[in-house]
Amino acid sequence: MADHPRRRRSDIPTTQRIIAVLWPSFLTAGIATALFFTSFNPEEISLCMGADKPISNVGAYTIGFFLFWLLTSSTCALTCYFQRPCIQSEQSTKNP
């Protein structure tokens, strides 16, 4: 069976790959959270969305931040995925 390597040898370390997805997304999610909640009041949002009791401010910031982080890390992950070369080099598909 052909040994199809998941990554090429010259790739970056795993730690760097994980950081490349999670760290920039963390930063932009933080900025997005700050900007978003400067404009919108979390209490108003939670009431508009049909909650019986308005969510606390810190709770809203927390949930908002993690939702933003989820979104931005999806973007980073997609970017990393699309950075993979489309055309495989001859060496990696040849049976050693």
Binding site: D3, P5, R6, R7, R9, D11, P13, T14, T15, N95, P96
Partner: peptide, 28 residues
Amino acid sequence: MKQTPPERSGKTDREPDQESDSLYVKHK
């Protein structure tokens, strides 16, 4: 068939560690 790793002049986390199975290139 496993590919044998090529020779590399050692800098910290570039040397493949044959003992590890969870990470492809293990950080030293």
